[in-house]
Amino acid sequence: MPPDAPVSPVGPGAPAHERSRKARRRLRRDRRRSLGQPAGTVIADPAAAPTHIQAIWYDERQFHEQSHLDVPALRQLQKHSDVLWIDVAGLADTAAIKAIGESFGLHRLTLEDIVNLHQRPKVEVFDHYVFIVMKMLDATETGLTEQMSIIVGQDFLITFQERPGDCFDPTRARLRRDGGQLRGQGPDALAHALIDAVIDNFFPLLERYGEAIEDLEDAVVSAPAPALIERLHGIKRDLLEVRRSVWPTRELLNALIRDENPLIRDATKVYLRDCYDHAIQLMDIVETYREIASGLLDVYLSSMSAKLNEVMKILTIIATIFIPLSFFAGVWGMNFELMPELKWRYGYPAALGFMAIVAGLLVWFFKRRGWLEWERPANRPDP
């Protein structure tokens, strides 16, 4: 997600307004697909990415990893694995998703929520698994965020992502390391590690937003231009999307911490409280940046108004200087026969000199009153 995009300096490659339109179109498609369908119908988005299945199974002594798996191979892994993590990237293959649901006993409403990508972050508790929906940053630069679903069972964990590419490489590295603490714990600890990675991945993005807002703050004060408004609105749209992703995540984490569930151990809830604190910090940062961005819009309008007032003041002064000169030119341009100035040998240079003196006196008067000083914005002092 490069910070130098043409419109939104900190968002992914696509401009913020284009990402927003794509998200609205996708939401409309999802809602149209679900209209008239019975509850639990699994219908993939026509634009969904191809499905890739990766599996990791491990215990304290051994670790195994395999990519490009099919559903029959997953059924074999269920029989002899201690902790099984299945990562499904891409939701185009609904047959494979349904087969995974049948193998692990997932409710059909869960499968419907997995493929419908407009879900609000939430947590649902079933008899033998916990269903978690979150929003994480999109690593493919297709959008700002994407939906991720987590299924936490007794000895398995399944993740469903919209597209390949995620922020879980550090977690996978921890699992590959012999003697790691994560290897000796259950799926709930792995779920915490994934949730923590998703939340912490927002902090670098918000740092880039902060740097971009500081640059815009300097530009708005020193050199306001219409192009800054488009960038400012792009940042505000991205911050709103981050807020929609983080705000319900607090409720999700609070439910995991508060509710009694045998699949989420008390030892894991201690670490989930740390994730909850990080979500609170994210919300504080997002709200602060949104307020600054809204304030910058007011500063821009004030700067443009002050700049326009300066221009109008100069134009008014110039017009005021030429008003008496136009009067004298009109008087001497009437061409009456008995006007002695018209036939005087030095009348023309005398008229020009007189008008120059009048203009000079007006300039001196305006200068003395301080009306001819062009107010340049001072550089913002360092904090």
Rank of each mutant, 00 (worst) to 15 (best):
D169K: 07
L194S: 07
Q181F: 11
A212Q: 08
F168T: 07
D215A: 09
R208P: 08
P187E: 12
G184W: 05
E211K: 11
D166H: 06
G210A: 15
G180T: 05
E214H: 09
F168G: 06
F203E: 00
R183L: 01
R174L: 12
V220I: 08
R163D: 06
E207V: 11
Y209T: 09
I158D: 04
P170I: 00
F168E: 07
D166V: 10
D178S: 13
G186L: 03
E230K: 11
A225E: 12
A212H: 09
R183D: 11
Y209E: 08
I229L: 15
E214P: 07
Q185T: 13
E230G: 11
A223T: 14
G186C: 06
T159F: 03
A219W: 01
P187R: 12
E207R: 07
F202L: 11
L190M: 06
D218Y: 07
E162R: 03
A173F: 08
A227N: 12
A227D: 15
E207S: 09
R183T: 11
A223K: 14
G165C: 10
L175Q: 10
R174A: 13
H192R: 10
G165H: 05
A227S: 14
D218K: 07
T171W: 00
G179L: 14
D200Y: 10
L194V: 11
H192N: 14
P164Y: 00
V220M: 01
L228D: 01
D196C: 12
L228S: 02
D169M: 06
L216Q: 05
G184P: 02
L182Y: 14
P170R: 01
P170S: 01
T159S: 11
L190P: 08
D215I: 04
Q161A: 06
P204Y: 03
L194R: 01
L205V: 15
E207A: 10
R183H: 01
E217W: 02
R163N: 03
T171E: 04
L228N: 04
F168I: 06
A173R: 15
H192E: 12
I158P: 03
D218Q: 10
T171P: 04
D200M: 09
I158F: 02
D178Q: 13
E162L: 03
L228Q: 06
G180N: 08
G186D: 04
Q185M: 14
T159R: 00
D166N: 12
A191F: 01
V198R: 00
L175Y: 04
E214T: 11
D196P: 14
A223G: 01
A193C: 14
A219V: 00
Q181Y: 12
P187V: 14
I195D: 09
E230C: 02
V198C: 11
D215M: 05
V198Q: 05
Q161K: 03
A225L: 02
P170D: 04
R183V: 09
P226I: 05
A227Q: 13
